[in-house]
Design a protein around this nucleic acid. Structure first.
Lengths: 210, 210
DNA sequence: ACGCGCAGAGAGGTACGACCACTATGGACA
DNA sequence: TGTCCATAGTGGTCGTACCTCTCTGCGCGT
């Protein structure tokens, strides 16, 4: 029988060290690229052995938060408040041209649009309009409309108000950015894409999850 | 000027240990749930210190490949040939009760069913039928139909023939397994769930992506 | 015979301390 | 002025000792 409420065990030290290192980086106002104190120093300050500290560093390294350079030092890679670490890395390794990834992506984009339609507020709407407008300007200027396209998708994602979806789709997009570029560069594609975005926009305005 | 051939000719030990542990698990024909030899034994066999071995284990743990239990041993969680590594870990950390996750999950399940309908072959179909049948048996026996439910979903996922979707959904499900359990335990829910599965099955039989 | 409890074995977790390997730096020397 | 190299400082590895937790089985009491 298990006692769910009793403190059945003390959590491992390295997890708390990991968390405290994040706090430290935040409180010391460290920015990406800054160097952290040496391992021995950090271990002393946190009151743990160097072994435990190195375990925590290993975890943070795998998460992509820090870069540990032999003989040089430990450097902060991202702001400790960011999320999405391993996900993007994993998806980036897959071949972006994989039709499988495209299918998943499309499905999630559809979900985003659907959620956006029912949840959007006026700010979200303004951002989406801004994206479409920007895309128009780019296209009449003979460009491919990439910036506006990105703005629009970002706005839709924001309007969906779903953090999991947001992280997932951001990661997938990062991995398939090349594809989007290539696609939009095809003749006539920007115009078609713009029209599709207008349709979505109209539906979102009408709060119709179509 | 840097010498492109000579620079860092000594990669970290723990990376190679990590890889060798994967090989070991594969060659020893270990399956998920099996226990690995003790740390001291593994370190001796691989010819490295226990510290380095533990670094590698830490990495594998974060990847979600192994489960290290204090006082008990190290257990294999997935087949070492699987992919998904960091993805599952990331999704697993999120709160499974998050409505956001549920929305994404439902959307992907729908996609899976849709793809399954158009791509399924006879083997896939047989597996799906088996799942539903198992679920029926469980329910008439007064159980909750969990095993059959899982079999069915697995079969649908297989029938979709989309590796990215497969990895993603497996990861999400692993994190929300408790929810599914709780849901199926509610009175009347198993019957409703079974009916829904029958509908999906019929559509897949008819190759109708509904 | 049965059930309970406790001690031991074996596993992972933590801590030091020593030494190795790499990087950057600055002074000595040509 | 430019090059080389000794050195200090940092992460990387190792070995050992000891702590904590989990599981198991023996022995005692009932």
């Amino acid at each position: 029988m298990r006692a769910p409420e009793s403190p059945n065990r003390r959590p491992p030290v390295y997890t708390s060290v990991q968390a405290r290192l994040r706090e430290y980086a935040a409180e010391a106002n460290l920015r990406p690229g800054d160097r952290l104190p040496p391992e021995r120093e950090l271990a002393r300050q946190l009151g743990v052995s160097r072994s435990s500290l190195r375990q925590a560093l290993m975890a943070l390294r795998i998460e992509g938060l820090v870069d540990v350079q032999h003989g040089n030092g430990v450097y902060l890679l991202r702001s400790p408040t960011d999320t999405i670490p391993p996900l993007a890395a994993e998806l980036r390794q897959r071949d972006p041209e994989l039709p499988s990834l495209g299918e998943v992506r499309n499905s999630l984009e559809a979900l985003a649009a659907e959620l956006a339609a029912s949840r959007r507020n006026d700010d979200d709407l303004a951002d989406m309009v801004g994206g479409v407008r920007r895309m128009e300007e780019e296209i009449v200027a003979g460009e491919d409309g990439l910036v506006g396209d990105r703005m629009f998708h970002e706005a839709v994602l924001q309007a969906a108000h779903n953090p999991v979806l947001r992280d997932l789709l951001s990661a997938i997009r990062e991995g398939s950015a090349r594809i989007a570029t290539a696609s939009l560069r095809r003749a006539g594609q920007p115009a078609r894409s713009l029209a599709a975005h207008r349709l979505i926009l109209e539906a979102v305005v009408a709060r119709d999850p179509e």
